[in-house]
C-alpha cells in the first residue's frame, strides 16, 4: 500500500544525522537547588564522523555523555528536557528495558580509567562474551570464538592466553583495549569515548586512538571523543564542540575552529601560541581562574569573570548561540558585535 501511495519522484530530504541531540538539558537536584549541569546542548554526529567535545574539568562533558547513554547517576541527575535521536529513535522516551537493548548494541561507551572499568573478579574473556550474550546470543563456543576474534582485532597479543586473564593481570593499555573490544562487540552505530586515553601513557594513548580510528574506518560508526587534549582533537576529530559550564560555547569543523577560534574561552584553551596545531599533544592551556561551580554561576555569561574582553552586556545577559558562518556556532556577545576582527587567528 505504502508503495502505491508514495510519490515516486519527490526528492529525498537530506539524510538525517545518525545521532542528533537537541536542546538536551540535565538537571542536578541537590540541596543547593536545581542546577543545570547540561543546558540546551545540541549536537550531531553522522556515520563515520568524529566529534570531539572539549572543555576544562567540570564543564559537564561526562554528564552529557552519560545522559546520552541514559546512565546518569539518578539521583541527583536527571534529563529534564530535549531529545537524543539515534537513527531517528528518541532515546529519552524509551523505557529502561528498551534502553537496555540499545546500550552496548546501538550506542556504546568507553570510560576514562580502564583499570577500574572492568570487573576484577571476572576474566576479561568472560566480560567480552557477556555483551555478546546479551545482544546477540549464540552457542557458548561461538560466542567465545567471537570474543577471541575481537581481542585479536583490538590487538591483544596472545589473545588465547589472555582470554582467561583477570583485569589486574593486564596493563592499563591492554585493559582499555578490552573495554574497546566490549564496546565494539555488537557493531554500535555510535561510540562515545569519555577521555579514553587520559589515564594512559603517552605512547599508549596514540596506539589507542589509532585503534579507534581504524575500527571506525572499518565499521563506519559515529564517534564522540571527550578529551582534555587539543592534540587528540587535532589528530582524530572532524568537528569539535567546546563546552563551558554545561553549555556549548562554540563548535565547528576542527580546521575552522583551530584556524579561527571565536569564543574567548576557546582562544584561552589554545593559549597564546601562534597555532595550537603545532603542539599535537598540547594540554589545554591554563586560563586564569577556574570553572565556576554550578551553584554559583555568575549572572550573564558564565565565562565573564575570566574573560579578557568581557563588557557590560556580558554581565547582564547570557549570550545565545549565533552562527557566524555555515556549520559554525558560537555564544559570545563580543563576536556578535565585533565579528570578523575578533575572529582573527589567535596571536595574529
Amino acid at each position: 500500500m505504502a508503495l502505491i501511495d508514495a510519490p515516486p519522484l519527490t526528492p529525498l530530504p537530506p539524510a538525517p544525522a545518525l545521532l542528533s541531540v537537541s536542546d538536551l538539558e540535565v538537571t542536578l537536584f541537590t540541596r543547593a537547588g536545581q542546577l543545570k549541569a547540561v543546558d540546551r546542548l545540541s549536537l550531531e554526529v553522522a556515520a563515520g564522523e568524529t566529534l570531539a567535545i572539549v572543555g576544562e574539568s567540570g564543564c559537564g562533558k561526562s554528564i552529557s555523555a552519560l545522559a546520552l547513554m541514559r546512565l546518569l547517576p539518578e539521583p541527583p541527575a536527571k534529563i529534564t528536557g530535549g531529545s537524543v535521536r539515534l537513527a531517528g529513535r528518541d532515546l529519552t522516551r524509551l523505557s529502561e528495558g528498551e534502553m537496555q537493548r540499545v546500550r552496548g548494541k546501538d550506542l556504546a561507551m568507553i570510560f576514562q580509567d580502564p583499570m577500574s572499568a572492568l570487573n576484577p573478579v571476572l576474566t576479561v574473556g568472560r566480560q567480552i562474551v557477556e555483551v555478546i550474550a546479551r545482544h546477540d546470543p549464540a552457542s557458548h563456543r561461538a560466542m567465545q570464538a567471537r570474543a577471541l576474534e575481537l581481542m585479536r582485532k583490538v590487538r591483544i597479543p596472545d589473545a588465547e592466553r589472555r582470554f582467561n586473564d583477570y583485569p589486574h593481570q593486564l596493563s592499563g593499555g591492554m585493559n582499555q583495549r578490552i573495554v574497546i573490544a566490549m564496546a565494539i562487540a555488537c557493531q554500535p552505530k555510535v561510540l562515545v569515548a569519555d577521555e579514553p586515553t587520559t589515564a594512559l601513557d603517552v605512547t599508549i594513548q596514540a596506539q589507542i586512538l589509532d585503534l579507534m580510528k581504524e575500527l571506525q574506518a572499518e565499521t563506519g560508526m559515529g564517534l564522540i571523543i571527550i578529551t582534555h587534549d587539543l592534540g587528540v582533537v587535532a589528530e582524530t576529530a572532524d568537528r569539535v564542540l567546546v563546552m563551558y559550564a554545561g553549555r556549548k560555547v562554540e563548535d565547528g569543523t576542527v580546521d575552522a575552529v583551530f584556524d579561527r577560534p571565536l569564543h574567548p574561552y576557546t582562544r584561552g584553551l589554545m593559549g597564546a601560541t601562534p597555532s595550537a596545531t603545532l603542539q599535537p599533544h598540547g594540554r589545554l592551556a591554563e586560563i586564569p581562574g577556574s570553572v565556576p561551580a554550578l551553584a554559583d554561576l555568575p549572572a550573564g555569561c558564565a565565562f565573564n569573570n575570566r574573560c579578557p574582553i568581557a563588557f557590560a552586556r556580558c554581565f547582564a545577559e547570557r549570550p545565545g548561540l549565533t552562527m557566524p558562518a555555515p556549520a559554525r556556532s558560537v555564544a559570545c556577545f563580543a563576536v556578535e558585535q565585533e565579528g570578523v576582527r575578533h575572529g582573527d587567528p589567535v596571536g595574529a
Binding site: 546500550r103 552496548g104 556504546a108 580509567d113 572499568a117 566490549m182
Partner: peptide, 26 residues
C-alpha cells in the same frame, strides 16, 4: 559505586544481571 558497575550497565545488562553477576560477588 565502582566504575565497573557502570561499564556493566553500559553493556546493556539488566538491573538484575548487574546485581547478580557484577555486584554480588564483589
Amino acid at each position: 559505586r565502582h566504575d565497573f558497575v557502570r561499564t556493566a550497565r553500559a553493556k546493556g545488562l539488566s538491573g538484575a544481571q548487574v546485581v547478580v553477576r557484577h555486584v554480588f560477588r564483589n
